Computed example of a mutant assay.
Amino acid sequence: MLANGDDAQHRLYGHRKRALFAEIDGRGGHPPTVVEIGAGTGLNARYLLPGAAWIVVEPNVHFHDHIRAEAEAHGLDLDLRVGTSENLPVADGEADAVVSTLVLCSVGDVRRSLAEARRALRPGGRFMFVEHVAAPAGSSLRRVQRLLRRPWGWVADGCRPDQDTELLIEAAGFSDVWIERFDADLGLVAPHVAGVATR
């Protein structure tokens, strides 16, 4: 079902991902090492630099064949690892960039996941994200998000529509954080952020 929604995601977020990920660079002229958490069907492969080392941490083995196919189609050097964002199977400073798109809403411990992303980055490395977030405090949408949080989570694999992911990223200890706020036409999960947090 998620794979069938990839075209819609490309239409909604493709231009932002293309702009964000174009900034990923390697060390000493080498291709970059990109760690992606929760890559799903591998739809971000098309936005990465061909030849990049793509370390994918994806706990759902049913996505792995999709990820392998995307890596081959887009010329990426795939290293597929089973793990979680709260305990990344990645060495300290191994990554030039860590990528998270529409993942943090459903991880068990967002603070721990952000700490792990920061740990995996080299000094100056960047955490790049596109995530839906809670509506502004006091808004009618925020009240609806709170009201529907539990049934939404049952339907959407643990997703929390009222999570303050933006605030958690800002408080995660990165040296610099740039965030763009935007609305997608997605009802309950319309408020979004995209940005870069530098270690």
Results as ranks from 00 to 15, higher is better:
15 H>S: 15
62 H>Q: 14
96 D>E: 02
8 A>G: 12
10 H>S: 05
108 G>Q: 13
18 R>E: 15
19 A>V: 09
47 Y>Q: 03
70 E>Y: 03
18 R>W: 02
3 A>Q: 10
160 R>K: 14
144 V>K: 13
185 D>S: 13
140 S>C: 05
82 V>T: 14
71 A>S: 10
180 E>A: 12
117 A>K: 05
133 V>C: 07
26 G>T: 01
146 R>I: 04
99 V>Y: 03
120 A>R: 02
66 H>C: 07
144 V>M: 15
108 G>E: 14
176 D>Q: 14
55 I>M: 01
150 R>E: 12
58 E>A: 08
137 A>E: 15
164 D>N: 13
178 W>R: 15
1 M>H: 12
125 G>T: 04
89 P>M: 05
162 D>K: 10
88 L>F: 10
97 A>N: 06
102 L>C: 13
31 P>Q: 07
73 A>N: 10
95 A>C: 09
189 V>P: 08
161 P>L: 07
37 I>G: 13
119 R>H: 04
181 R>Y: 11
104 L>C: 05
119 R>S: 10
43 L>G: 10
57 V>Y: 06
60 N>P: 05
189 V>W: 02
30 H>S: 15
34 V>I: 12
147 L>H: 08
164 D>M: 08
11 R>F: 07
21 F>T: 02
102 L>K: 01
118 R>S: 02
66 H>N: 14
45 A>C: 05
92 D>G: 01
179 I>E: 05
156 A>L: 06
53 A>S: 14
24 I>N: 06
28 G>A: 13
9 Q>P: 00
45 A>T: 02
155 V>K: 06
190 A>W: 00
36 E>S: 00
108 G>T: 12
91 A>I: 04
184 A>I: 04
13 Y>V: 12
109 D>V: 04
18 R>A: 15
71 A>F: 04
191 P>H: 06
26 G>A: 10
98 V>Y: 07
